[in-house]
C-alpha cells in the first residue's frame, strides 16, 4: 500500500516539476516550425532535411515545414536562416558551403553567424573514373595527371564548389599543381557523372552516395575515398591515405542551425529532440538506404568543426585562385 502510494506521489511530484518547468520557460514549440533548406528539392540535403523534418514533427508535436530557399550556390537560403527571428520557429540546415562563400566575398555569413545545434551528416569526397578507363588506383590517376598537366578534366559541381576543392586539395597535398586537372563546372554531381560516362571528362570527385547508382550499374569506378576510414557503403574502396599516402580528407557536411541568439532553453529542447531522432531506427534506416553517412556533434564541437572546415577550405581556395 505505502509503496504504491509513494510511487504515486513521486509521479505526481515529477508531474508538477515538469509542469513548473513548462511554465517557467515558454512552452516552445507552440506553433509550426519552418526548416529552411538552401538547396533544391530532390538533392541529398533536401532529402536529409525532409526526414529530419518529419521525425522532428513527431517528436515536437508541431508541424515542421521544410522550405527550399534555393539559388546563389546556397547564399540565399543561408541568408534566410541567419536573418530570421531567433525564436526557434525558423531553423535551417547549414551545409559545408557556409565555410566557403565568405572567402569568395559572396556574403559575410560564416558558421559563427548562427546558433549551432548539431551536425548530423557528413559524406566524404570520393574519386571516381569511368569503369572502362585504364586507371586502376588513385596513384595511377595522380601519376597520369602529373605526367599530362591539363589533359584530365574533372567535374561534378560549380566553379569553386566543394568537389572542385576536394580534388584541388588532394593534388596540392601530393605536391601536384591543382590546375593540372582543369575543373569543368557542372550543375551538380549528376550532370558531372553523366558527362563522365559520356566521355566528356575523366574524373568526378563527388561523394559515394551521389555516384552510387552508376557504380552499381558498372559504369563508374571509385578509386578512393577522402576520409580517415573506408565508407560503410563501399568498404572495398580504399582511403586516400592508403592509396596515395596523402593525409587530405574532405567531406560535405550538413547540420541543423538556428539564427544567432536563440534562447538557451529552446536550443536545449531542440538539441534533445534531434539527439533522440538521431538515435531512432527510422533516421538510421533512411540514411543507410540512401547511403548517407551519419555523424553527430553537439553545439560546441559543431561550432569548432565549422571553424576548422572554413579554414581548411579557405587555404585550398587561395591555392586554386578563387580567393585572390
Amino acid at each position: 500500500m505505502t509503496a504504491i502510494k509513494r510511487r504515486h506521489l513521486a509521479g505526481l511530484a515529477a508531474g508538477f516539476t515538469l509542469a513548473a518547468a513548462g511554465t517557467a520557460h515558454a512552452a516552445w514549440p507552440e506553433r509550426p516550425i519552418t526548416l529552411i533548406v538552401p538547396w533544391g528539392a530532390g538533392g541529398g540535403t533536401d532529402a536529409t532535411a525532409r526526414i529530419i523534418g518529419s521525425l522532428l514533427e513527431k517528436e515536437l508535436k508541431q508541424p515542421v515545414n521544410v522550405v527550399n530557399r534555393t539559388g546563389g550556390s546556397g547564399v540565399v537560403g543561408h541568408q534566410a536562416i541567419a536573418s530570421a527571428a531567433p525564436d526557434g520557429y525558423t531553423i535551417g540546415m547549414a551545409t559545408v558551403e557556409i565555410g566557403m562563400m565568405h572567402w569568395q566575398g559572396l556574403t559575410a555569413l560564416k558558421g559563427s553567424s548562427y546558433t549551432p545545434i548539431a551536425l548530423v551528416n557528413a559524406d566524404p569526397a570520393g574519386l571516381q573514373v569511368r569503369a572502362d578507363s585504364s586507371y586502376k588506383s588513385a596513384k595511377d590517376l595522380v601519376d597520369a595527371i602529373k605526367a599530362n598537366p591539363g589533359k584530365l578534366k574533372s567535374s561534378g559541381t560549380g566553379q569553386g564548389g566543394i568537389w572542385h576543392l576536394a580534388i584541388a586539395g588532394m593534388l596540392r597535398s601530393l605536391s601536384v599543381d591543382p590546375a593540372a586537372s582543369p575543373w569543368v563546372p557542372s550543375n551538380g554531381a549528376a550532370p558531372g557523372l553523366q558527362d563522365l560516362v559520356a566521355g566528356g571528362i575523366e574524373i568526378v570527385p563527388c561523394s559515394l552516395p551521389e555516384a552510387r547508382s552508376l557504380i552499381d550499374a558498372g559504369k563508374v569506378r571509385s578509386l578512393a575515398v577522402m576520409d580517415a576510414k573506408p565508407a560503410a557503403l563501399y568498404p572495398n574502396v580504399p582511403t586516400l591515405k592508403a592509396a596515395t599516402g596523402s593525409d587530405w580528407t574532405l567531406a560535405a557536411w550538413r547540420g541543423i542551425v538556428a539564427p544567432k541568439g536563440l534562447p538557451k532553453d529552446v536550443s536545449d529542447r531542440l538539441l534533445a529532440a534531434l539527439e533522440k531522432l538521431h538515435k531512432s531506427a527510422e533516421f538510421n534506416d533512411f540514411m543507410k538506404q540512401r547511403g548517407f553517412g551519419v555523424t553527430w556533434m553537439p553545439p560546441v564541437e559543431f561550432a569548432a568543426f565549422m571553424e576548422k572546415s572554413s579554414n581548411d577550405l579557405g587555404a585550398v581556395m587561395k591555392a586554386v585562385g578563387i580567393v585572390k
Binding site: 546563389g72 540565399v76 559572396l106 566553379q159 564548389g161 563546372p185
Partner: peptide, 21 residues
Amino acid sequence: GLDNPAGHPRFTFGLPELMGG
C-alpha cells in the same frame, strides 16, 4: 545571378536575393 559556369555574381546590384537568379 551567381549560378553560371564562372560562379561570378552577375547583375545582382548587390542584392542577395538576385544571386539566386
